[in-house]
């Protein structure tokens, strides 16, 4: 497979409006920050190449709108994601409380094959601001209760931990992809003509 292309990862960013999803992306992809708030309409899309160990992967980042009135992108929108990033604002308790519903919403809409082990990453953003409303411990506890989701505290403004967080996102997403490769090497010959029904009869599932 020497000619194999770079792996492409679909990464969805979710969270309440104003927690800094777009700012995090901008910091990560463009190394820029602006204090000005502009609501995302629908979704923004960014691409970034990143190295994970010895592999270069392309991250296709789907920055979504946190405001409810813009959340009508259709059920197909979240499908086929490799990783979901949940963002909250450490100074705004309601944004932390809503992580549960964002996570549930994502699992319903994206309907991943194995929801228990689907890779999430949680980012507590705006750690440069005071007063702090959600402690590190509280956030970590929530993450542990959800099958050990990796947790990062970030500041898009100060570029704090942003690079590391996205590195972890890429790594987690990639682990899913590697899993996929294994799955396909176990597949039998493409289509057996002697089989009368070429439909999936479940015997090739690696789970």
């Amino acid at each position: 497979m020497a000619t194999r292309k770079k792996v492409l990862l679909k990464v969805i960013i979710l969270g309440e409006s104003g927690v800094g999803k777009t700012s995090l992306m901008n910091q990560y992809v463009n190394r820029k920050f602006s204090n000005q708030y502009k609501a995302t309409i629908g979704a923004d899309f960014l691409t970034k190449e990143v190295q994970v160990d010895d592999r270069i992967v392309t991250m296709q980042i789907w920055d979504t709108a946190g405001q409810e009135r813009f959340q009508s992108l259709g059920v197909a929108f979240y499908r086929g994601a490799d990783c979901c990033v949940l963002v909250f604002d450490v100074t705004a308790p309601n944004t932390f409380k809503s992580l549960d519903s964002w996570r549930d919403e994502f699992l319903v809409q994206a309907a991943p094959q194995d929801p228990e082990n689907f890779p999430f990453v949680v980012l507590g953003n705006k750690v440069d601001l005071e007063p702090r409303a959600i402690s590190t411990k509280r956030a970590q506890q929530w993450c542990q209760s959800k099958n050990n989701i990796p947790y990062f505290e970030t500041s898009a403004k100060e570029a704090l931990n942003v690079e590391q967080a996205f590195q972890s996102i890429a790594r987690n997403a990639l682990s899913q992809q590697n899993h996929t490769v294994d799955l396909y090497s176990e597949l039998p010959e493409p289509i057996s003509l002697t089989k009368t029904a070429p439909r999936n009869n479940g015997d090739s599932c690696a789970c």
Binding site: L8, K10, G42, A43, F45, L46, T47, T58, Q60, W62, S72, L73, G74, V75, A76, F77
Partner: peptide, 13 residues
């Protein structure tokens, strides 16, 4: 890759 996201979003919408 971002444009592909836009195309998918339009279709999905």
């Amino acid at each position: 890759a971002s444009y592909f996201g836009v195309m998918q979003a339009l279709v999905s919408f």
